[in-house]
Each structure stands twice: as structure tokens, then as C-alpha cells.
Design a protein around this nucleic acid. Structure first.
Ligand code: MN
Ligand code: MN
Ligand code: ZN
Ligand code: ZN
Lengths: 135, 135
DNA sequence: ATTTCAAATGCAACTATGTTGCGTTAATGT
DNA sequence: ACATTAACGCAACATAGTTGCATTTGAAAT
């Protein structure tokens, strides 16, 4: 009756499936960002690994989760927490060198001055070091 | 007679080889950061692709070049330009969505406020969008 | 210049990560 | 319940990065 979810880029209707729900739950309830391989291990035999890739892509395009590129190039995913509808991921991510957890720091938004002849569309700020638990 | 170069982490002596020199030249003279595969194509039959990986690791550990993690997770390398001997890569990198070039913006150093119970050791700030050439 | 010796290399084999095509299954609107 | 097509599983492929080991080579010492 009503559209449950759409790909915000192409305004295409997407569907809620068992695997998608389970993976979103996992990401939502995790205290740190999760990689594809971590999700694969945690979900065991929920679905094929290719399906996990496709579900993660879909959730990113639906603006429900966001990608975080770690310092070693590995990609992690975390829940989006947009207060306002305008949705820019300009917050900092912290990557702990000891426990290897990546966390969103929603309220740390760096300021910077960049020449006018650049157009910024997206932002990826990652700090690494020791988190409070490992300090 | 005199040590030409050392791994700053382990204070181990390293050697200058033909391939290392050529790859460093390439990175030094490039106006944008280069990935392993780009270097591999540009150097043709200079050396094995495994050797390129090892040379890049060595140059990073010698603090001669630095790693840049792109928004898609690909890793690029650029020359270090340290004025003072204290050496922190706290400058911004710009990743153009059109020409795909990644450039160092040495004089753009963002400011941020982070809780005291975090210890920051390294920084990776990447902005993406359109560069002056593509705007 | 020759010797010496570990750093660096080439090669093969391997693991990890991500993508594509296609036939089948299942979510959702009617 | 039926029709439509998004989502799925599977196999095959592509790309990125690692490891072990025998051989080569840079450069310090003689
Ligand atoms: Mn985040
Ligand atoms: Mn740089
Ligand atoms: Zn930690
Ligand atoms: Zn450009």
C-alpha cells in the first residue's frame, strides 16, 4: 500500500527481506562499525556472501547506513543518525589501533578552509590512535 | 661509509636500489598521488609487482612518502614535504570524482575538538568532489 | 679492487576482497 | 490468489595484497 523504502539516488522501490532486516539489526545494535567479513561471520548461514555485498550497497543507497573507509583501506558500515533531513556525513570517525574498533563521533565536525575553486561533495575524516577503553 | 637511509620505525638500514629510485622519482614528479597499479603500469618491466609493494612499504617506513586512503578504499602514495622534522600528516587530501586524481593540500589543516580520553596518533582527512580542472 | 653478508628481488603459490551473469525464489501491489 | 520484478544463490571471474624461498645485488669493510 505504501512504499516501505526507496533508493534515494534513483527513487527506485526496494524490498524488505529477512536478510536485509537481520543485517540492519546487527549494524544498528553494534557499538562499532562493521565490515563485510565481520557481518559474514556474525550472520553465519543467513545468506550468501554476495547477498551481503548487495544488501550493504542497498542500505547505503537508501541512506540508512553509511560507509567508513578505514586507514588500512578496509570498509566498514555504521548506522546513520540524521537529526535534520539534510544529510551530510561530516562527522569524524575514530579508529582504535589496539581493539581495531571504528566508531562514529557524530558531534565532532572539523572545520577547514578550502579554496573556492574546489567543490566538495563528500567528506571522510578518520582519526586513529587509542580509544578510551584502550588508553 | 655513511648510512644513506633507515627505516625510522625500527632503525634498520635500508638500501637504495634501481627500482626504488625510479619509483620514488615517479612519485616525486607526479602532480597527483599514485596507486600501486598505476605505478605498475607506468614502470612497465622495471620490476615485479611484489617488489613494488615492498618498495612502497619501505618508502613509507622511511618517511619519504605517505599513504592516502581514497574514498573507495584504494590506496595511493604521495611525496612527503616536511618542513620541520616533526612529521604529522594532518593535511587534507582532495579526491576528484571526475578525473579521479588525488592531491595533497598541504596547507589545509582542519581543526577539531576531541574528548581528552582519546589519544590521536594519526589523521586521514579526505574531501571529494570536483577539482579546479574539472569544475 | 675484492670480499662479505644481509637487504632486496623474482617467481610461484596463496589468501582476501569484490564483481558479474543467470536461473530461481520470494516480497509487495493489485 | 496472482502478477511483477526485486532479491537471492551459485558459479565463475577479477583485482588486491601476502608469504616462502632460492637468487641477486647494494654497500660497508678490508
Ligand atoms: Mn559515521
Ligand atoms: Mn598528502
Ligand atoms: Zn580501542
Ligand atoms: Zn578533477
Amino acid at each position: 500500500m505504501q512504499l516501505c523504502c526507496v533508493n534515494v539516488l534513483f527513487m527506485k522501490v526496494t524490498r524488505n527481506t529477512v536478510a536485509k532486516g537481520a543485517i540492519l539489526d546487527l549494524i544498528t545494535n553494534s557499538d562499532s562499525a562493521l565490515s563485510h567479513s565481520e557481518i559474514h561471520k556474525l550472520t553465519q548461514d543467513l545468506c550468501d556472501r554476495v547477498t551481503i555485498y548487495r544488501i550493504l550497497d542497498r542500505l547505503v543507497n537508501e541512506d540508512v547506513i553509511h560507509k567508513i573507509v578505514n586507514l588500512d583501506g578496509t570498509i566498514k558500515y555504521a548506522k546513520c543518525h540524521h537529526e535534520n533531513h539534510v544529510h551530510i556525513h561530516n562527522h569524524v570517525h575514530f579508529s582504535c589501533e589496539k581493539c581495531l574498533k571504528v566508531t562514529c563521533m557524530e558531534n565532532v565536525q572539523p572545520s577547514y578552509i578550502i579554496p573556492r575553486n574546489y567543490k566538495v561533495n563528500d567528506v571522510n575524516f578518520t582519526l586513529s590512535g587509542l580509544c578510551p577503553n584502550c588508553l
